[in-house]
């Protein structure tokens, strides 16, 4: 039997856990790419707390749902407009029968000379990056994060220099599901439309005359630059689906969040702490005249009584019977 036993149930543990992650803002900046599209995302989240905690026997617990709050989400898009070649056609086909070309590696009617054509754009006709500020749709983003943590107790010094037996929770695994975005009530389509308009206006700067725009569009096969860019970005009717695909697949935001949260939780402060040495009687200031028998009588009217303490030994923490137990002995 240990000298001292403390235990905490799941709900209190959860409350303490949630106080240990005080909503520090975590920034990330990640990029990815799709065909012809460069994607970047800037974001800021904070951990709001655990939605559900389940103790496992031993020293691990499951964090069923880690709630995070989004503070910022900005998507950056850059487009590598394809350098379309036009006017390429077969100028001269292989004559069907030429006696002295018997060993020619051509079949009759095969193209022998191709008209070279031209490219629509010179250099790299890249657009952007331009930003889509997605803060307005943050309430519609669902992020499901879970994880398994282990707890341990360790003697450590805090910032004031005092030593404690500190109980920490460290992640062994964090699972971040791909984020989902429900119907954004028209907000996301409006944001995307604004962004595409900007991109189209950037592109149109490269094309000085209206007839040139229409000739370019005839080659691209789209009625408008907006339609072309939407197609280039692979944005179709369901923009929420598109954004989910961009964030989850192209950016791999689940992995970004995983890294961010894992790191943050590795660096998190302790959940519980027990003073070591353990004070039975705290240090205090007392009047000299109320006591006697000093080794050396204090000079002033008061003196500082040092804390009466005992070292903590055999400190252990574990989960059992839906409680977290901290046990320790006094080294006296």
């Amino acid at each position: 039997m240990s000298d001292v036993t403390f235990s905490v149930n799941e709900s209190t543990f959860k409350a303490v856990f949630n106080k240990a992650y005080p909503g520090k803002k975590l920034n990330f900046n990640e990029s990815g790419s799709k065909v012809l599209v460069w994607l970047g995302v800037e974001g800021e989240i904070h951990i709001e707390g655990a939605g559900g905690i389940e103790f496992e026997d031993g020293n691990t617990f499951l964090l069923k749902e880690l709630e995070i709050g989004w503070d910022k989400l900005i998507l950056r898009l850059g487009l590598d407009v394809p350098n379309v070649e036009i006017g390429k056609f077969c100028l001269l086909r292989m004559p069907r029968s030429i006696p002295f070309w018997g060993d020619a590696p051509f079949l009759g009617d095969e193209c022998l000379v191709e008209f070279p054509g031209v490219t629509l754009f010179t250099g790299k006709p890249d657009i952007g990056p331009f930003k889509l500020n997605l803060n307005a749709i943050i309430p519609y983003i669902v992020t499901e994060i879970g994880g398994r943590y282990f707890i341990y107790i360790n003697k450590e010094k805090d910032s004031s220099g005092k030593f404690y037996q500190m109980v920490h929770a460290k992640p062994t695994a964090v699972d971040v599901d791909p984020i989902s975005i429900s119907d954004t009530m028209g907000k996301l389509p409006a944001i995307i439309q604004g962004g595409i308009y900007y991109a189209a206006s950037q592109m149109i700067k490269y094309i000085p005359q209206t007839w040139m725009v229409d000739v370019v569009l005839s080659f691209l096969g789209f009625p408008t630059l907006t339609a072309f860019l939407l197609d280039l970005l692979d944005i179709h009717d369901d923009v929420e689906d598109w954004l989910m695909d961009v964030l989850n697949v192209s950016i791999g935001i689940d992995n970004v969040l995983y890294q961010l949260i894992f790191q943050e939780m590795l660096e998190s402060k302790e959940l519980f702490k027990i003073e070591d040495p353990y004070p039975f009687i705290d240090a205090k200031t007392l009047d000299v005249s109320d006591f006697g028998g000093y080794k050396t009588t204090p000079a002033g009217s008061t003196f500082e009584l040092p804390a009466i303490t005992a070292p903590v030994t055999d400190a252990a923490v574990e989960f059992a019977e839906d409680n977290m137990f901290i046990r320790f002995n006094f080294g006296i």
Binding site: F89, L91, G221
Partner: peptide, 18 residues
Amino acid sequence: AYPDPRQNSKAEGKEAEP
């Protein structure tokens, strides 16, 4: 001929035969 963008379609071949 003027390429009327309203008639453009991605499905159509972009280049006509010479």
